[in-house]
Amino acid sequence: MKFDPQKSFGHPVLRPGSEDYVHADFQSGIGFGINEKNENQYLLSYDVAIGVKELRDLITAKRGAVQIELNCRTTFYSRVYEINFLKGAVPIEANLVRGGLEICCYVTAKKIIAGFTSPKINSEFGKGAITFPRYAVLACEAPIYYWVDREAFRNITSIFDYGQDPELSEGVWRLNLEEDRVQIILSPNQLAILKQAQNSKQNQAIIINAIIFGAVVEIVNTLKVKNDFVGRRWAQNVLAKCSALGVQLGDSANAIDVAQKLMSKPLATLNSLVFKSGDDN
């Protein structure tokens, strides 16, 4: 259902941007993310607040229901979830959805509801009781959009590969953005040193801060100004991850800030694994 605050339903509908009810809101508190307990699922979380007591009473009396509709245009997947509690989460199988998701929360009438009144109904509807037809929409929120790609929830380091260039000297590295994974190019000797070093968590934290962080900053700066790489797998992954984190890659985006978000504060990892890991004495 397309959301339109100006649409006339023939009865009051609690929704943002509409004056059908006065001084009353409807909020769904929708969230969407990977299910930490099962990586093959997403979790659609909700925390619904209905600012009209009489509508809440309809739900309690099972004459109305709160429903969340999820639509995925890419996979042609659509489902309506009737929820029994105003706060909770429903699992979504990750292999059913991809790309853009539209999620919208509703309150609908489960049966014909006659004699409905509320002091919050706009007086333009008159003073008499209102009858809602069966299945009528009683409240709805503007849809919320998410962009999902399973790879977006993987660690950002999954977009990197190491490559070799014998011409490079030890201690020097450069990036190659032309492949599906970003290549960190090193001399064969340097690569051997890094591979050996990766065996400890402490060293991994150092590599992440010394090399990967710089690479991610460069990637973010590149994606801010160039569309050339959008078709690359690594770029799609970064863009999807930005979308999942609500990060905009516009002109004003600060690459250092964005990189820290994408990498979940890499300095904090260095703090906990290297700087604070030893005996303080």
């Binding site: 309506v80 509703y106 299945y135 929409v137």
Partner: peptide, 12 residues
């Protein structure tokens, strides 16, 4: 556009 069709049971 005015009803949540997906929430309606099959017979209805």
């Amino acid at each position: 556009g005015i009803m949540l069709l997906g929430a309606i049971p099959p017979q209805d």
